[in-house]
């Protein structure tokens, strides 16, 4: 039985065609080119809503993202290094070969996202929702993950070397090849053993 998907635009209840995430009302003006140029040209990216789009090869270093809604997006080979994020939603998104090194992120949402080959090295990820993510080959080393949540996350070949894990919640997570060397795991919450 097939699923009927609704338009990803907030509060729109129209159904979408196969292969599209937006209904015809919202597809026409919400182009990738429009949002790509908007984000690369401005330093402050505030209150933009761009659900359901695929972004490739973007240089978004040293930007400020505030109150942005990127639900159900795809980011391939994009670079957000040294950027600041506040209250941004990237839920149900796909990230590939993308870097978030030395970012400062607070109260952001990545729940249900798939993350492959992502570099978060040296970042402050404070109170970030990473629940139910599927992360393979991610590097969080030397990051502050204070009060973030990885509940029910699948983490494979993930580096968390020398991280602050105070109040980080790994409940019901599946972990394989996660390296916690030098991190304060005693201050994090675990209820499952690592998969061998």
């Amino acid at each position: 039985m097939f699923d009927l998907d609704y338009c990803s635009y907030p509060d729109c209840k129209k159904k979408v065609r196969t292969g599209s995430r937006l209904c015809e009302d919202h597809q026409s003006w919400q182009s990738v080119e429009h949002f790509s140029s908007l984000m690369t040209e401005k330093d402050l990216i505030g209150d933009i809503k761009a659900p359901g789009l695929t972004f490739k090869n973007l240089d978004l270093r040293n930007k400020r993202f505030i109150d942005c809604y990127f639900h159900h997006t795809q980011w391939i080979n994009c670079h957000f290094d040294r950027s600041i994020f506040q209250m941004c939603f990237f839920d149900e998104s796909v990230f590939m070969d993308t870097s978030f090194t030395k970012v400062n992120m607070k109260h952001c949402v990545f729940t249900d996202s798939v993350m492959t080959n992502i570099d978060w090295h040296g970042s402050d990820l404070i109170s970030v929702n990473l629940n139910n993510i599927h992360a393979v080959n991610n590097n969080f080393s030397e990051s502050d993950l204070y009060y973030s949540r990885f509940i029910a996350a699948y983490l494979k070949d993930v580096k968390m070397i020398d991280c602050n894990l105070k109040r980080v919640d790994f409940s019901a997570s599946q972990r394989k090849g996660v390296n916690f060397k030098y991190s304060n795991t005693a201050e994090a919450y675990f209820d499952t053993e690592e998969i061998q």
Binding site: H107, T111, N131, S148, R149
Partner: peptide, 17 residues
């Protein structure tokens, strides 16, 4: 307490938990 979320995400995770 803790980070924000969405109703849909919580519904999904709630069933699992």
């Amino acid at each position: 307490h803790g980070p924000p979320s969405t109703i849909k995400a919580e519904k999904n995770i709630f069933i699992h938990m």
